[in-house]
């Protein structure tokens, strides 16, 4: 094939790039790759959802009047931001069943209502959610603190309870500050799901690994799957940009950077953002 020859012509060492294989891998995805894609997407979505809920609860707990409640939130954030996600994933998948006396927490098939999951996926989902909750806790906290105290006082003076004040007045306003870093968290999450491959979850990356060991076409498989991740994060960046522009417009604020500026890192860095 002419394409191969271009590479092979490079000195003595022969580079081989099987374009055919690559194009088929990417554009005629196998059922395994499609199912991997589906797992990656839904684990990312649900882990982000659960992490956001956990993070909100943790942020509220962190501002509680009760010292014990504050301490629990503090230790949670400290531990899960201070240890590798990879270790946490092993801890959840292999560690907790052992801790519970060999209880099969994550069996091959888990049935939650009408949903049927592989146990490993559930374990990955749990670990990602708990980890994400610790990061979201800081983000939500910054969001809540960004809301003027006068808002809480006005709500209280109208007879609103704490819960009502948070739900109807403070959190909706905190959203403006929470959403940009939340979007970045989800961008990370789409990629971080690949760590589940090491507990044998057949998400995108694991499928690429399998393709590699079956064909030894490492570059084609890994580059192919990289493009899949790139497509996911690019689509998400576009969605995120839309959401933020709408949010910015309703607040009459400056325009958010466009898709390209954002992806090429031309946008100014925002505060309140937590790196990993």
């Amino acid at each position: 094939m002419p394409f191969d020859m271009v590479f092979a012509a490079n000195g003595g060492a022969s580079l081989t790039f099987d374009l055919d294989f690559f194009l088929r891998f990417v554009f005629q995805p196998s059922p395994a790759l499609l199912s991997g894609l589906a797992i990656t997407i839904y684990v990312a979505v649900f882990a982000q959802l659960a992490g956001t809920i956990l993070g909100t609860l943790s942020a509220l707990a962190g501002m509680s009047r009760l010292r014990l409640v504050r301490a629990i939130s503090g230790i949670y954030v400290w531990f899960f931001r201070g240890t590798p996600l990879l270790v946490q994933m092993f801890l959840v998948y292999f560690g907790t069943p052992y801790l519970l006396g060999g209880l099969d927490l994550f069996p091959r098939d888990v049935n939650i209502g009408f949903i049927n999951l592989r146990g490993a996926i559930l374990a990955g989902l749990v670990a990602l959610s708990i980890n994400e909750g610790a990061y979201m806790s800081e983000i939500v906290r910054a969001g809540i603190l960004s809301v003027d105290l006068g808002q809480t006082e006005a709500a209280k003076s109208l007879g609103m309870t704490y819960g009502l004040t948070m739900r109807r007045i403070v959190l909706p306003q905190a959203l403006r500050v929470i959403i940009p870093p939340l979007g970045n968290e989800f961008n990370n999450m789409l990629k971080t799901t690949s760590l589940m491959s090491i507990i044998a979850v057949e998400e995108l990356f694991r499928v690429a690994q399998a393709a590699n060991s079956a064909t030894f076409k490492a570059f084609e498989a890994y580059f192919g799957v990289a493009l899949y991740y790139l497509a996911l994060t690019t689509i998400w960046s576009a969605v995120q940009g839309r959401i933020e522009r709408r949010l910015g417009a309703s607040a009459g604020r400056e325009r958010q950077p466009g898709l390209w500026a954002r992806m090429l890192g031309l946008s100014r860095s925002r505060d309140g953002q937590v790196g990993r």
Binding site: G150, A155, S157, Q173
Partner: peptide, 13 residues
């Protein structure tokens, strides 16, 4: 008890 603040504190959203 109704309260009116110096800085209004209307809910901006």
């Amino acid at each position: 008890i109704g309260m009116v603040f110096q800085r209004f504190n209307l809910f901006p959203h």
